[in-house]
Design a protein around this nucleic acid. Structure first.
Lengths: 104, 104
DNA sequence: TTCTCAATTAGCTATTATGCTAAATACGTA
DNA sequence: TACGTATTTAGCATAATAGCTAATTGAGAA
């Protein structure tokens, strides 16, 4: 397998590898949201949220649609939500091993 | 949902958000491998590969086992391999939209 | 013990990511 | 036109990553 494939994949992963961007992905699970709504959820300044959105857009994860002077973003590839299941499995196994380490 | 949950998830994502680390995860799909074998696959220096492995280990993705003077790593949570499917779906949809943009 | 090999850690530099404030754009309304 | 609101982009300072070489640790062999 070519290294460029892994580089492309890593770009997508990087576009999700930030707490605020994971919050955004989760928030968009139920449907589209404008930047101002996402800002409330994430709790950063509007420019910062906008930049996170732009990273996710460039990675092909979300898409924006203008309505008036607001821009509504939505998930393009909803399967990213299923990533959480696996990530949480990693976290659980981590906690299990941490507990074992304490016992031993 | 608490922000700390998203921070923990982001740590796991970050531990995979690098081409070399994705290559390592993929290589470990078929079973454990020592660092020297992974080095050949990744194509970086041994210290660099070792540091990638240590990041993945801290995130709870892999585990190492010493045998003689070699250390064999294995995937702790094999479901990370299923991530590739979704990531590739993102890449495909990206290419589709890029093609549409060229047509228009 | 001493030597060698595999792996990790230290120390450094270069690159990249993050988040802010301030400025620019886009759109709707008066 | 001019103004207000939502969003993006620029520019900057700080922090985090990545990769290298050199030094260190761990385990087996001579």
């Amino acid at each position: 397998m070519d290294r460029t494939v892994y580089e492309a994949r890593a770009e997508v992963m990087k576009a999700l590898a930030h707490p605020s961007r994971l919050m955004i992905a989760d928030a968009l699970a139920d449907g589209e949201m404008c930047v101002c709504e996402l800002q409330e959820i994430v709790g950063s300044t509007m420019p910062t949220v906008s930049r996170h959105l732009s990273q996710m857009k460039n990675a092909g994860i979300i898409e924006g649609r203008r309505d008036g002077n607001q821009i509504y973003y939505r998930l393009l590839v909803p399967c990213v939500l299923r990533l959480f299941g696996c990530i949480d499995a990693v976290l659980q196994s981590e906690h299990l091993r941490a507990a074992e380490a304490v016992e031993a």
